[in-house]
């Protein structure tokens, strides 16, 4: 838990910037991180030039970054212009989820999905009303549905890769691809339950937490751990592993699509 004085110091670093709203997000807010985790601070500004008064600001795609340290802890500030935020919202809501003939694969970039998730889970520390207004530009349920649909495409690709490798007796590759298929399937389960954090490093933690209130997820956690932690060394074992992994993937996706 971060203290009030910590947040005051966080805001003091960017006091010279005319921010519309500021919110804390990332692993600290989501209780996924640890005492050494960075703190991610999002700053909505009317124009990115507004942040140019600060030192160490570097251009990174569609937002600017300032890295600072508060009470010995790293704090990453991201400065997002109102126009860019609106563009992300427009890109999200233009995704043709309900059009069977249209491609939806990777319609949002990594920075887009990071931003949307961190807006969704953010904790406003300056101008809550404006923060709520910015949140209202996004349909987070639609965002969740997009993540589910997009990740199922990854599952399907990995699933078919695995089957093709298996048929070709390329068993080592198939075993590793089967494991990836399961990983993506677990992500689909997490997304479908509203857990839109897409960081793979926290996958197992998110699944375990979900399992505390969801029996199916609890079972998935136990089986996922077994599949992740041990691929057999023997050919017979690898073949059984591939079959188990693909069946497990199918069970997860069918439960989500049911």
């Amino acid at each position: 838990m971060l203290s009030v004085s910590f947040y005051e110091k966080v805001l003091a670093v960017i006091a010279a910037v005319p921010a519309q709203s500021v919110w804390i997000s990332g692993s600290v807010v989501e209780h996924l991180g640890n005492a050494a985790s960075d703190v991610d601070v999002f700053v909505a500004v009317e124009d990115r030039a507004a942040a140019s008064v600060l030192p160490l600001t570097k251009i990174n795609g569609n937002f600017d970054i300032l890295i600072s340290f508060v009470e010995g802890r790293r704090v990453d500030y991201e400065f997002w212009s109102q126009d860019e935020i609106l563009r992300i919202a427009a890109r999200l809501h233009a995704i043709p989820l309900n059009d069977a003939g249209k491609n939806i694969l990777n319609q949002l970039s990594g920075s887009d999905t990071d931003f949307v998730h961190r807006l969704k889970t953010g904790w406003p520390v300056m101008d809550k009303a404006r923060f709520n207004e910015i949140q209202s530009w996004f349909d987070f349920n639609f965002y969740k549905d997009y993540l589910v649909a997009n990740t199922i495409l990854y599952v399907d690709d990995a699933f078919d890769d695995t089957v093709g490798m298996f048929d070709n007796k390329d068993i080592d590759c198939a075993a590793l691809r089967a494991r990836f298929t399961v990983e993506m399937s677990v992500d689909v389960l997490l997304y479908s339950n509203g857990i839109t954090n897409d960081k793979a490093k926290y996958r197992i933690k998110k699944l375990k937490t979900l399992g505390e209130s969801n029996d199916f997820a609890k079972d998935v956690y136990n089986r996922f751990w077994q599949l992740q932690s041990k691929i057999p060394g023997s050919l017979k074992g690898k073949i059984a592993y591939i079959q188990d992994a693909l069946k497990f993937s199918s069970e997860i996706i069918e439960s989500v699509q049911h």
């Binding site: 188990d244 199918s250 699509q257």
Partner: peptide
């Protein structure tokens, strides 16, 4: 019993079995 290499998918209110 279903074979492991077949996946069932729902897509826009239709249901499919897919093998490659």
């Amino acid at each position: 019993v279903k074979l492991f290499y077949v996946r069932k998918r729902k897509h826009h209110n239709k249901v499919y079995l897919i093998h490659l």
